[in-house]
Design a protein around this nucleic acid. Sequence first.
DNA 1: AAAGACACCTGTCCGC
DNA 2: TGCGGACAGGTGTCTT
Length: 278
Amino acid sequence: MNLTPVILMPELPEVETTCRGIRPHLLGQTITAVTLRQPKLRWPIPAELMTAVGQAILGVSRRGKYLLIETAAGTILIHLGMSGSLRLAEAHQQAAKHDHVDIALGNGKILRLHDPRRFGAVLWWTGPIEDHPLLNKLGPEPLEAGFVDQHLWQLSGGRKQAVKAFIMNGHIVVGVGNIYASESLFRAGILPHRQAGRVSRQRYLHLSRVIREVLTEAIAQGGTTLQDFTNSDGQPGYFAQELLVYGREGQPCVACTANIKMKVIGQRASFYCPKCQT
DNA sequence: AAAGACACCTGTCCGC
DNA sequence: TGCGGACAGGTGTCTT
């Protein structure tokens, strides 16, 4: 087998791993300063973010691919976009290129956002977090009880969109990015370009289980591979995983040896086995 | 309401 | 070695 190691950037497992990695360093700490070197991310970083200075961090959580840092005055929302990563730097470590935001903590450490492409976001919200316009229409978390087995099938009726685009729609279910969408559909034996409304109930039940499995495995892998978030030499937020179809166009299928195909669906590269997936 | 195109931005890789 | 062009993990917004 010739599996391709791919360096992954933020899909849900990377965001979850980041969340778990930074949480113990943040909880209970007071935010002592916020430094913006480049406020032009996907949206301008709002001036109200400064309200966070002086606040204690009460919670660090994740909704979809949004990281949520909660204080009594409001919540900092961080999205890593396509190229973002967070790390904990020491006070003496000077910022590098593309280190756009620093959140300094009472313990002397700095939560530092690095994002070359600047598709990420840092926002501030003072209301109930579930009411935020970016969060209030999101589908269920695939790894939580709200993602019932029949959910995908129930929402798929009549949809002519490709099933891959359907499961990547955050309003249907969150956290299935481009890589794991291909991987999940391969494991479930479903062609990515099949119409969402033309996948059977039984196959959606299988797909739902597979999505949970793939994401859980990737998170477990991240937990074992990820460096200490305070390690200055580490590559926080990045880890390698072996993938069965993603990026393997022209290579043999691990199950049947047929050539893996690539097809652009919804402007995203999609990989599949033409024999195993129907 | 649904589906598809487009936008944001930088870095990297490939072919010439 | 240099240069232009294609392409890359996401997702909100605009157009059909």
